[in-house]
Amino acid sequence: MQRLGSDGGNAVTRVRVAGGVLLVAHLALVAWITLRPLDVPWVSAANLRPFAGIRADLALDPETAVRRIAAGLGLLAPLGLLLPLAGGRLAVSTLGSLLRTIAAGALLSLGIELLQTGVPGQVVDIDSILLNTLGVALAHLAVVPAVRAGIRRRAETRHRATVLREDPAQGLTPTIPRVGIAP
């Protein structure tokens, strides 16, 4: 949210701080969900083949498959909105923002999977990285471009209203015609 109006500086700071706080809270929740030890009688082998776990989920009944895939998509999906919100940029390339957000989501998901190797009861799954990254991308595409366009439109409308407003005591600003250089 770059400064477009006279009150922009304070608003940008508030948005970035709110985005940062929500981002930290979400990451704490994700860490608690994914990195706590589980007390299980046995642990399945790590899945290092892409789409093998998704195929296995689809082989189960449809309700269980949808629930597992939606959980994979939804775990890091809020990052698709929270990362750009914490960054606070308004005038940025849509593709650049999407690529930065996807890369951050993929790296965070990879970090979680690597940390899970040392947690009892947790298993590394490459499909989790794929689903988490896809969830981040879908959330970003669904929300961020529309919100940025709305904020830009609102800021431009406010800016035009400020520019067009005149001081009644002064009247309109006179225009002076161009004067050439004297001989």
Rank of each mutant, 00 (worst) to 15 (best):
M1I: 01
L4G: 14
G9I: 02
T13A: 15
R14C: 06
R16L: 03
A25T: 07
A25R: 05
L29A: 15
V30W: 11
A31W: 10
W32T: 12
W32L: 12
T34G: 01
R36T: 15
L38H: 11
V43S: 14
A45I: 00
A46P: 02
A46D: 14
N47R: 13
L48K: 05
F51A: 10
F51G: 00
A52F: 08
R55M: 14
D57H: 10
A59V: 01
P62W: 10
T64R: 15
V66S: 02
R68Y: 06
L73P: 08
P78Y: 11
L82K: 06
L82D: 06
L83P: 01
G88N: 09
R89V: 01
A91R: 14
L95A: 13
L95T: 14
G96S: 05
S97G: 15
I102E: 06
G105N: 04
G105K: 06
L107N: 04
L110R: 02
I112H: 02
I112Q: 02
T117F: 09
G121W: 04
Q122P: 01
V124E: 03
I126D: 02
D127G: 04
N132D: 13
N132P: 02
G135R: 10
V136N: 08
V136E: 05
A137L: 06
A137H: 03
L138Y: 05
P145W: 09
A146V: 11
V147I: 14
R148P: 04
R153L: 14
R158K: 10
H159I: 01
D167S: 10
P168M: 05
G171F: 04
P174Q: 09
I176E: 10
I176Q: 10
R178M: 11
G180M: 07
A182K: 11
P183H: 13
